[in-house]
Simulated assay, not measured.
Amino acid sequence: MSRPVPLLIVTGLLLGLIFPMGKIAVEVGVSPLVWTFLIAAGSGLGLMAPLLRRQKRRDWPSGFWRYATISGLVSNVLPNLIVFAAAPRLGAGQVGLMFTLSPVCTLALSLAAGMRRPSSLALTGVFAGFAGAVILVLGKGETRMEDAPLLWLALALLIPVFLAVGNIYRGLAWPEGAGAAELASASNLTSALMLLAGLVVMGDLENIGALMNVPMLTGLQVVLSCAYYVALFALQRAGGPVYLSQIGYVGAAVALIVGVVALDEHYGALTWTGAAIVLVGIGFAVRDQLRVR
């Protein structure tokens, strides 16, 4: 099997597990910003071994920490800050819809940057996944565009833009000689420092103690996050930015199944139709990778 295919499935599966775990944490009193800080700090510290080995050799690739800082800022900190600011004003459905735009934005930016043009099969997968994801979000009954404040809606539209820029940047600026695990660690450590500053500014720092209310969930989240970020950076290198961006589709489908099986959530026919179309889109993407590699 082509290496990007299992990486896409594993990365999307881990992403899909992170979503419902975050929901459980918020329901027991952990703020979303604290949970995001936990993911960044836990992953950064959990994957530090390669960084420590690199530090002993003192052979940092050129631009290594610049890459880590920009990657963390664009892919993690800025999108999450917008999510926290916009979700109370727009609703979870509309904010979730913004994440489904990421593959389409990544595709547009990759073409503008002169990167390899995806095949017609890959393009079909991107747009089929997008259509299914939109239907999936609409099926939750939370999206009311006519009620959305235009300023916040415009701000929320920056979420997929930042995610797409991050996907492209990670691929184009990858420091020569750097490994996936050490880049994942460094990017999360720089993200954690920026998120910590956000916690201080927003007066949310004292709420970190709420993590002690769910120690097993906290530990499991750190372990899954470490695995997720290693897989993410490996997929970035193996599959490219457009292929990588489709982890959101896989994650959405997995989160839906986990919600039904483990969290007793219930969805209507529209949501399941959307999920089926998402799976068709993923199938096109997988078939394309098996064909060309």
Rank of each mutant, 00 (worst) to 15 (best):
L81V: 11
Y249Q: 00
A133F: 04
I9K: 04
F130D: 02
T271N: 10
A68D: 15
V280G: 00
N80F: 15
A210N: 14
I24A: 14
G44F: 11
V242G: 08
Y249V: 03
L157E: 06
N80M: 12
Q94L: 12
V95S: 00
G259S: 12
D204N: 04
V77A: 06
E27V: 07
L263T: 12
V292Y: 13
T69D: 12
V161A: 00
A154S: 11
R54T: 07
Y228L: 15
V242C: 01
G240W: 02
G166Y: 03
I282S: 00
S102W: 02
M21N: 01
T36Q: 05
M48P: 05
P215R: 11
V134H: 10
I24G: 04
G46N: 12
G96T: 08
V77P: 10
A238C: 03
A269P: 07
A92Y: 07
T106Y: 02
L17C: 15
P241C: 08
G29H: 12
V278Q: 00
G125R: 02
A87Q: 14
V34G: 08
S31T: 15
R237A: 09
L205R: 05
G166V: 03
G268V: 06
A186W: 08
L217Y: 02
G72Y: 11
L101Q: 02
V258D: 09
V28L: 09
R237C: 09
D264C: 05
S110G: 05
E265H: 13
G177H: 11
V214N: 08
C105K: 10
S225V: 01
A262M: 15
L256I: 09
L15D: 02
S225K: 02
L136A: 12
A184E: 03
L195D: 09
V261K: 15
A238G: 09
Q94P: 02
V74P: 12
G240S: 08
L158Q: 00
Q289I: 04
F162Q: 11
P20Y: 13
Q221T: 09
S120N: 15
V222S: 01
F64Q: 01
G177Y: 12
L235C: 00
T190Q: 00
M21H: 09
R54D: 03
L15H: 09
